[in-house]
Design a protein around this nucleic acid. Structure first.
Lengths: 240, 240
DNA sequence: ACCCTTAGCGTAATTTGTACGTTAAGTATT
DNA sequence: AATACTTAACGTACAAATTACGCTAAGGGT
């Protein structure tokens, strides 16, 4: 019963950041014989593939992400369904899928997930994976550029509403780190002094009796995120 | 090519209201021979069914909704994907699907849509359809109760963010009607005088030179919704 | 004529948000 | 060792938004 379903696939848009920039995780697509389709740059795509018939979509997304990139335990959230009839129209795309799966492909509906890893640590990823800056993404196959656009939109909403922001930080974090994260995802500049006041009023951001070490400035107090407090809060209000 | 895909279905949760109460549109499920499964009340389910292979999911949802209920031109929004492996576990559910489609059913992933009609006008619906109060929904087959719960959660978010609220009102509406609608969907009581002030500041709620007629109180001014103004607004802020 | 209901305006008090000034505590530089 | 540089952290004055509530208006119903 463990057959691949030729009608169902998943795609993952995994975001990470590095210092100041937002990046997306892409994998090289290898064509069988005649070499890569594009000669200019490695042929990149979102990590994705077909789903087994007895497999949950979320599990499929995790499995495929691990197979293609080596990344494990990434929190994945389903945010869209791609069903347009022309998504396999580019001949090379369909050809590639048929070659790599050994199946005859007509229509594929893809369930899209976004994922977030905190600060990017290159060593965790397999060879053939690339963290690409948002501004430098181009010439992706299928409808992958469109998917990324929608993923960014969805994640922006989710980060604030579902407290996903805090998944991106270390367990102990400073207010400055939190603000920096928001700047990266939303391009909004806010006054750090007022930002601090806002955060200090939130019951689910809990101050610790600890400070930073070895930083080239006054060490900041550390905080932690309280999931339970947050879920009470988020039912009534929208934050940030 | 126009084959039903035995792995893909859609379900619609259509909300409507009547005076003071929120209701959901259900249809009777007819078993072929041995009569209905439950003897207590007509066996009800969400309007849903299998998708054709060359059909967009949204189109499938619209088509099925019309076939089963007679309702047309309902705005449908995709909000979830149901993929759990045990959703066909109840024998009667699988049996019913196999009987009505003539296909062998193993796994079915269902794409869930919510829809909204304004004030319910019974005459528009076919026989065998029922508008059921939220509080009286029970004993639905498959995972339909879970779907409804999630639909309510999703629509609450969408109503405010996407301006879907205004789709539920007549083209010309009063501030009181708008407030009443919010009360129905969110159970929140707010001061009507302050609510009025809030609405009057919104550029996309445009006052008309018209009043109500034949009401047992002071006739209210009518307003209309401006979609363009709204979309500018909604990019930056969240309302209500 | 009087009651009931919703409409619609206004005002004062409170809360929240914004724009800054200022001092503190570390590392890096000279 | 003094100075510069960076982020931390507190406070204050003002502006803007929200809230609570009083009051009059304009219909139809009894």
């Amino acid at each position: 019963m463990a057959n691949l379903n030729p009608h169902l696939s998943t795609d993952c848009v995994v975001f990470g950041y590095d210092d100041k920039e937002l990046k997306v995780l892409l994998v090289e697509r290898e064509m069988n014989k005649r070499g890569s389709v594009s000669n200019f740059q490695p042929d990149l795509k979102l990590p994705g593939g077909l789903v087994f018939n007895d497999e949950l979509l979320k599990d499929a997304a995790s499995r495929i992400l691990k197979e293609l990139t080596g990344l494990e335990k990434v929190k994945l959230v389903q945010f869209d369904v791609l069903d347009s009839l022309d998504r396999m129209d580019k001949a090379t795309d369909r050809e590639w899928l048929e070659q790599t799966t050994g199946l005859r492909i007509d229509r594929v509906v893809s369930i899209a997930f976004f994922g977030i890893v905190g600060v990017i640590r290159e060593k965790n990823c397999k060879a053939g994976t690339h963290w690409v800056k948002m501004s430098e993404i181009k010439n992706l196959p299928f409808d992958h550029e469109e998917i990324i656009k929608r993923a960014l939109f969805a994640i922006r909403q989710s980060l604030k509403r579902d407290g996903l922001l805090f998944e991106l930080l270390d367990e102990k974090f400073t207010i400055h780190q939190l603000q920096n994260l928001i700047r990266i995802f939303y391009d909004e500049e806010t006054d750090s002094r007022n930002f601090r006041k806002k955060i200090k009023k939130l019951d689910f951001v809990i101050p610790l009796d600890e400070k930073q070490h070895n930083v080239a400035h006054k060490p900041a107090q550390l905080f932690r995120f309280d999931r339970k407090q947050f879920s009470q809060f988020s039912n009534t209000r929208i934050i940030f």
